[in-house]
């Protein structure tokens, strides 16, 4: 039930931000739309802790900020390699351990890896993620396990 309420709140927020016309008729239609969407989503069985991770709570924005810094660093690194006339790349395929307990945690980890250019997750299994990296630097970064630990901390103990 909590997931439905939180979905309703986020849907309503999105509607208000999109709409820009705050008349009685459109607000009523908006509320009705949210209810219809939740009914169909319930029928599709897409509302649960995976699609609506409220249990992650306030840890999520902090993680995003950290990830943003990583993305910026990785972007500059890859951009430098692309414009370098000698094209200093050394691509490799390897596996890193994933200590996340839930599917959602693994998804966040894999997508974070892909989101930082220079590393790209190619396969996700129970306890490891296969990664393609553009250079040794990207591999070393992942092998330190910082991102893995951050995502584990994000998952918490719930």
């Amino acid at each position: 039930m909590a997931h439905r309420i939180s979905l309703f709140v986020s849907l309503a927020t999105v509607w208000l931000l999109l709409s820009g016309h705050y008349t009685g008729l459109l607000l009523t239609l908006g509320a009705a739309s949210c209810v219809v969407v939740i009914a169909i989503s319930h029928r599709m069985d897409v509302i649960d802790h995976e699609s609506h991770p409220i249990h992650l709570g306030w840890r999520l924005p902090g993680y995003w900020l950290w990830l943003l810094a990583e993305i910026v660093k990785a972007n500059i690194d890859v951009a430098r390699r692309v414009v370098d006339p000698s094209l200093p790349i050394d691509p490799r395929l390897f596996e890193v351990p994933a200590h996340q307990k839930t599917d959602l945690g693994r998804v966040i980890y894999a997508n974070s890896i892909t989101l930082t250019p220079g590393t790209l997750s190619t396969d996700v299994s129970r306890d490891k993620i296969q990664v393609h990296a553009l250079s040794g630097a990207g591999e070393d970064d992942l092998r330190t396990g910082t991102m893995d630990a951050k995502v584990c901390a994000l998952e918490g103990n719930s």
Partner: peptide, 9 residues
């Protein structure tokens, strides 16, 4: 869900 809401918008 958000795609559907956007459609209704």
């Amino acid at each position: 869900p958000f795609v559907m809401l956007f459609a209704l918008y």
